[in-house]
Amino acid sequence: MDVIEDRLVDARDLMCPMPVMAATKAMRGLRPGQVVKVLATDRGSLGDIPAWAEANDDEVLESGEEDGVFYFYVRKAE
C-alpha cells in the first residue's frame, strides 16, 4: 500500500496497554486526516488497535504482520 505515515510509533516489545497509549499520545499531535503507523509485537494489539481506532472514529487504513511485527496505519478522524 502506498500510504506514507506522518508519525511512526514503535511499540515493539511493549505490552498492553502501552502500544495503545503510545499511539494515543502520537495521535494527539496529528492533524485530522494525518496517518500514524503503529508497530507492535503484543498480540493483544491485533484487537486493541482497531478497537481504539473505531472508538475514536479514526480509520485503520491497513494492517498486517511482517517478520513477527504487527503494523497498523491509522488515519485520524476528519
Binding site: C16, P17, V20, M21, A23, T24, A51, W52, A55, N56
Partner: peptide, 11 residues
C-alpha cells in the same frame, strides 16, 4: 491503571 488509561485512550 490499565483500564483507566485504556478508557482515556478511547476518548
Amino acid at each position: 491503571l490499565i483500564l483507566g488509561s485504556s478508557a482515556a485512550a478511547v476518548g
